[in-house]
Structures are given as structure tokens and as C-alpha cells.
Write a protein that binds this DNA or RNA. Structure first.
Length: 228
DNA sequence: ACCCAGGGTCATA
DNA sequence: TATGACCATGGG
């Protein structure tokens, strides 16, 4: 992974898709809820769930905790795994209030805040980094399936590296540039949704010209290794 | 009738 | 430490 190449890819994606002003959501808390609901789930489904929460005036930690698991599950049903996610949302909200809310949480160092987020049941590395970057504006790079697919197709990484390994290499090249980290993950996701499909049926990818002899394109998205 | 989507946890060997 | 099972809806 090379800094100049990364910047080149970023510039090209931004030129084509940006600026995106992520994350879609009106408040930090909405970002956090969306980050949990979008786990392994299409965003269009999450939008429906969030709409239901807003209609029920439930998009606040106290309100989510006040709902029964069944009622909360009914509201977020379109986002899939609704039983699991209802529990995860309530675990998260309980933690959020126990910690003292947005202002107190904002006072923590990024490393500390990340560790605390990861301690919540249902918050894994990607969800934690979504929240850190898009709700707390911390300089972290979010690794997701789109990132692995794109970078491996472009021959920039193997693709099956552990989460922390990929995150660290990109952060090392970009530094603490929050706006750039924000936009980079955003354009990778939009690019993945609109153009760079899992199976090689895309001929429209602006980056494909740069894929070594189409070899990158035919590479199936790799699965991450478990740990170090 | 498939395949896919902005993951994470838990049990088991 | 490493797999595998499981979670579930909606759109293409």
C-alpha cells in the first residue's frame, strides 16, 4: 500500500462521486443507530427502520430504552435481524447513558473511546469506527467489505488481512485528516453500491482501466482473517 | 428462485 | 486461533 496510489484512487473516486457529506443522518445519535442497523444490511432497509423510529418519536436513547424489545423490534423490522438488533440498540443506549451522554463521551481520547465502544455487545470494529469517524469526528479509517473488494481488485492489498491491519495501513498513509477519512470511506461505499459489484458484471467502473489486465476485476471479494 | 447487503456473537474443537 | 451456525428483511 502506497500513499501516492491511495491518493490517486481517492482523487478519482471523489471526482466521480463526491462530495458526499457523510454520514446520512441529522444527528450524531442517528448516525450511531444507523451504524448498528446497517450491519450486514442494505441501507435502503435501514432507512425504513429509521423512518419508523422517527415516526414513533423514538430516536433518542431514553426512548429506545423505554420500548419493550418486541415494540422496538417491530419498528426496526425492515432492517433485518430485528431481534438481535433490538437488543444491540438497547445495550448501546444503556451504555451511552451510563457513560454520561454525548458531551462526556466527546471528552475521551480516541483510543479510550474506541475501547469503550468495543466493549458494548453488538459493537464490533467497523461499527465502532463508523461511530468514531462520523459521530465523533475522530481520525479513523473504516474498513468494510467494499474496501476489501476495491483495494484487492486494484491490487493494493491482498484483501484478507485482519481488520486492524488494514485500518492501520491506511491511517498511516493519511494521518489525522478527518475530512479526507470521512470522504474516502464514503466514496468507497458509494462506488461499491453503484458500480463495483461483488461478481464481475461491471464494465462501467472508472477505475477498471487501472486494474491490471482485468485480473483485479475477476477476483472474488476475499474474506477477512480472524485476527493477527 | 436465487443472490446480495455499509457485521457481530457465540459455541465448538 | 479458527471455523461454522446463526441472525432476517427487502430489492435486484
Amino acid at each position: 500500500m502506497n500513499a501516492q496510489r491511495l491518493k490517486q484512487v481517492f482523487d478519482r473516486l471523489s471526482e466521480h462521486h463526491g462530495p458526499l457529506n457523510w454520514w446520512p443522518g441529522e444527528s450524531g445519535f442517528e448516525v450511531m443507530v444507523g451504524a448498528i442497523l446497517t450491519q450486514n444490511t442494505a441501507w435502503s432497509n435501514v432507512e425504513q427502520a429509521i423512518t419508523h423510529l422517527k415516526q414513533a418519536n423514538a430516536l433518542a436513547p431514553e426512548r429506545i430504552l423505554a420500548l419493550s424489545p418486541e415494540d422496538l423490534g417491530a419498528l426496526i423490522r425492515p432492517s433485518g435481524y430485528f431481534n438481535v438488533k433490538a437488543r444491540r440498540l438497547q445495550s448501546f443506549c444503556q451504555w451511552y447513558l451510563d457513560q454520561g451522554g454525548q458531551e462526556i463521551l466527546s471528552g475521551w481520547d480516541t483510543r479510550v473511546l474506541r475501547a469503550r465502544l468495543l466493549s458494548v455487545n453488538g459493537v464490533g470494529p467497523e461499527t465502532a469506527d463508523d461511530i468514531l469517524l462520523y459521530a465523533f469526528e475522530r481520525p479513523v479509517f473504516v474498513v468494510d467489505a467494499y474496501t476489501r473488494r476495491l483495494f484487492s481488485r486494484l491490487g493494493m492489498v491482498q484483501g484478507d488481512e485482519p481488520y486492524e491491519s488494514l485500518r492501520a495501513s491506511v491511517e498511516a498513509l493519511i494521518g489525522e485528516d478527518v475530512p479526507m477519512l470521512n470522504e474516502l470511506h464514503a466514496v468507497i461505499v458509494i462506488h461499491g453500491k453503484e458500480v463495483c459489484r461483488p461478481r464481475p458484471r461491471c464494465n462501467a467502473c472508472v477505475l477498471l482501466e487501472e486494474c491490471p489486465t482485468g485480473q483485479g476485476l475477476n477476483r472474488f471479494p476475499p474474506k477477512p482473517r480472524r485476527s493477527s
